[in-house]
Design a binder for these strands. Structure first.
Lengths: 238, 238
DNA sequence: CAGTGGTCTAGACCACAAT
DNA sequence: TTGTGGTCTAGACCACTGT
């Protein structure tokens, strides 16, 4: 079997919503009809529909039917910004990296707590300026567990750190806990982001966890004020 | 049947993770054992486990077992901030509201697009200062579709707008699309949020949709700089 | 190889909506 | 009353892990 049947059904129905076969606000065929069409059991169809509901394409009314959410397509055009996947993947070749700092340090109390490491466990401290189309995009201040990411070097930092972590080390990212706030400029902002003294800074502080829940990284990423930077989210109700 | 069996199982297992019956990083009993214990089919147990995985408590390895994510409990202590549920629900009785503006207007082009209404459809324009424990918490500038929220009055705005929408009008919120950014102060910030001229402002601009995808509200909410305000998110990978 | 999770089925019963 | 979605079952086969 190439791909799970429910995933195939999921993709076919998604396509039909996007191309207008199933129209905004209208009901789609009922579960029995779909099970029939796809030669699947109703449970399997239901699983595909549940996923589509979770992603915001559909909603169901017991006793009535399953309907296409209005603006379903619109909303999906702007995806949540998955920073843990790495900027390189999002922005491709257009991004450059300038490594400002690359050291191994012992963790402070706060870091020991965030990364769940001992005071004697070595930690990488990295500062990178990321540049997109010649403009400063974000200044990243990262602490990485050295135990989890052996063999890190400056060459990797010039390219994609997350490609190294995911493809070479085969580590799997599970989740990220983020705290987004507005801050005043500091020295690094003025120096590297070319910010002016009273510009507001969009700061994203995050702890990134592996699939098994081990903390991988604690980082503070600061974006300059230029009217372009924003963090976007689609928040679905349960 | 009081509550779906899979939800009961979901809650029992969640409790066991929180109280340490199932320990961080360790495997929980296999699906057959759980099905046996709860007198349920394996499919039903699987559904509960899938939900727990989605919420970040567990992860599964085919061929090996189902494990408790480390920091599962930690992460869940800080919930995503569901602003569409209304501040009143989050902060309870501690919140006061000062209504600065309450008008009916015709929508601008941008608003017509955001709320999917015609230029002749009336729209409420509302400005409210929300105060928590005597301190300015957020300044809300809201545009609401008057067709969807009939009978709105200033008394409601002094209490909970979302309680009126959800309980009295029985409208169901489906999702919210948010854009979070750092901004410079404007006149309202200085006047109502007691911000200083060069303080950074955390701005959350959102479109809130009903369950069927109809746009309900477009609003711009601005938080003062005081080191306390931040937007927190737990971002789970697929 | 045995044990585990991932998927799928065919049928059943229920709750709710529309008529 | 009929049709819809929501839940649940008992069993089956497969893919993968660990020994």
């Amino acid at each position: 079997m190439a791909e799970a049947k429910y995933k195939q059904i999921f993709n076919i129905i998604k396509k039909r919503i996007k191309d207008g076969t199933y129209q905004n606000g209208k009901a789609i065929p009922d579960q029995n009809a779909l099970a029939n069409e796809f030669n699947a059991s109703r449970m399997t169809v239901k699983k595909a529909l549940d996923m589509l509901s979770y992603e915001g394409f559909l909603y169901s009314k017991r006793g009535s039917g399953t309907y296409v959410r209005q603006n379903a397509a619109d909303q999906r055009d702007t995806l949540p910004f998955n920073e843990y996947a790495g900027l390189t993947k999002e922005l491709g070749e257009k991004i450059e990296s300038q490594v400002v700092k690359f050291d191994v340090v012992f963790p402070t109390k706060t870091l020991q707590d965030q990364l769940k490491v001992k005071s004697t466990d070595p930690i990488y401290e990295i500062k990178r300026l990321r540049i997109v189309e010649g403009e400063p995009y974000v200044f990243e201040h990262t602490f990485l567990s050295a135990r989890l990411v052996p063999g890190l070097n400056e060459n990797i930092l010039h390219h994609s750190l997350y490609e190294y972590i995911q493809k070479d080390l085969k580590l799997k990212i599970g989740s990220a806990f983020r705290r987004i706030s507005a801050e005043k400029t500091n020295e690094d902002d003025l120096k590297y982001l070319k910010s002016k003294k009273n510009d507001p800074i969009l700061q994203i502080q995050q702890t990134v966890y592996l699939e098994n829940g081990e903390p991988l990284e604690f980082s503070t990423n600061r974006h300059p004020y230029n009217g372009k930077h924003a963090y976007t989210i689609l928040d679905m109700k349960k």
